[in-house]
């Protein structure tokens, strides 16, 4: 599965599990407007670590991305 598909899947699963309404997902979507709050985003990051074996935010200087597109790019870059 591509990184992007996996990320979208996790957004959808966490939203369902936490009973949140997910905004339509697009690259421009600001993460804080996605319907998931910061705790839910932490769960997404933990699950992606399980699925993809990476956590790009562990490094001290990594800033949390603003949009979904940025978020996906961080994972794609970490994968390379």
């Amino acid at each position: 599965m591509s990184v992007k598909v996996e990320i979208v899947t996790q957004f959808e699963e966490v939203a369902k599990q936490q009973e949140k309404t997910l905004a339509p997902l697009s690259d421009e979507l600001v993460l804080l407007d996605s319907g998931l709050d910061s705790l839910c985003l932490a769960i997404v990051v933990a699950r992606l670590e399980d699925k993809l074996g990476i956590d790009p935010f562990t490094a001290d200087d990594a800033e949390f991305p603003v949009t979904l597109g940025d978020f996906i790019r961080v994972y794609e870059d970490a994968r390379r």
Binding site: A42, I43, R47
Partner: peptide
């Protein structure tokens, strides 16, 4: 705790 609590939440 930071790393463990995330997995607990998940």
């Amino acid at each position: 705790t930071k790393y463990v609590v995330r997995t607990m939440m998940a």
